[in-house]
């Protein structure tokens, strides 16, 4: 049996929705234009460039098909660079989140001078990444670095070591700096998450006789899930695309043993002057981030309600 009055309200509602979308457009337009101009257009242009043959001087020499992608996959050092990238992203994000969990817990307690400590945590975040990295470059210098000097004076090392002059130690030092600059943001996201945990839930856990560890793992931690999801996702993207730290700290190391896909892209542009190949690598980079995030959302299901 068909109810003749059932369809019109639905249609009307759809019409209303369409009208209100149209009405909202003037207010959305600036944002849309901005997104189109600074996100969609450059990304689209990058895809386009990755299929063109571009000369050293930037002249477009025509269609290149998959040649640029072929060149990227023919690079002998690519496996090492991908491995580096994986270690870089997983290592930096994991350590940042672990450190931040502890730090946020600490900052959530009331103690005298808490505001000052909270402000101090923000400092590495507020400072320019290039500046922070440069400070470490000087500190770790084998000739006049204070960190090297300290390690020698305290007897940890017999003589200064060129931390940023060897691929493995340079890479690890850069990762440490990456953690250092990622921790503030992560901490504050988790801290915000901690403050959403209602006091009565904690009280209830106490009344039920839960130990401190049980309270944390069974009550607090599950409620941090959305905050952790945001912190981890944004960190993955940031760390994956991070250029300045590695560029500043390991840029002088010859070869590609301390490179991630992002710094390799930069070297292809700057050193080899191959804008087309670099675009292809950027597209691959972009796809890898998308896949990583898709897997993350699928497997960890961070947004699932508790």
């Amino acid at each position: 049996m068909i109810d003749p009055t059932a369809a019109p309200p639905k249609a009307r509602r759809r019409k209303v929705t369409r009208e209100s979308t149209l009405q909202a457009l003037p207010w959305l337009a600036p944002a849309l234009l901005l997104i189109g101009g600074v996100v969609v257009y450059p990304a689209g242009y990058m895809f386009y460039t990755s299929f063109r043959d571009i000369s050293r001087f930037g002249t477009d020499l025509g269609w290149a098909g998959w040649d640029n992608y072929g060149k990227v996959f023919a690079l002998g050092h690519l496996p090492r660079v991908f491995l580096n990238t994986a270690v870089w992203v997983v290592g930096v994000v994991l350590i940042s989140v672990l450190v931040s969990l502890v730090l946020a817990q600490f900052l959530n307690k009331t103690f005298p001078g808490r505001t000052v400590v909270r402000l101090a945590v923000i400092v590495p975040w507020a400072a320019s990444v290039v500046m922070t990295s440069t400070i470490f470059v000087y500190g770790l210098d084998p000739f006049y670095g204070v960190i090297n000097q300290f390690l020698v004076d305290t007897g940890v090392m017999a003589q200064p070591y060129g931390f940023l002059k060897n691929p493995v130690s340079g890479f690890l030092s850069s990762a440490a700096v990456a953690v250092f600059v990622s921790v503030p943001f992560t901490t504050f996201v988790i801290l915000a998450g901690l403050q959403t945990v209602p006091g009565d839930v904690l009280e209830a856990a106490q009344i039920d006789g839960a130990t401190k560890a049980q309270t944390y793992w069974r009550v607090v931690f599950p409620m941090l899930r959305p905050a952790l999801a945001v912190a981890a996702l944004i960190n993955v993207i940031n760390v994956f695309n991070s250029l300045p730290i590695l560029r500043t700290m390991t840029g002088a190391i010859p070869g590609y043993d301390a490179d991630t896909t992002t710094t390799l892209t930069f070297k292809i542009i700057q050193g080899d002057r191959q804008i087309d190949t670099a675009s292809a690598l950027s597209v691959i980079n972009f796809l890898v981030v998308l896949i990583v995030i898709a897997f993350y959302l699928r497997i960890v299901r961070p947004m699932r309600e508790v």
Partner: peptide, 12 residues
């Protein structure tokens, strides 16, 4: 030479 010439820049 100095240690690690491969990664030492000129100005410093």
């Amino acid at each position: 030479t100095q240690a690690d010439p491969g990664a030492t820049n000129r100005t410093p």
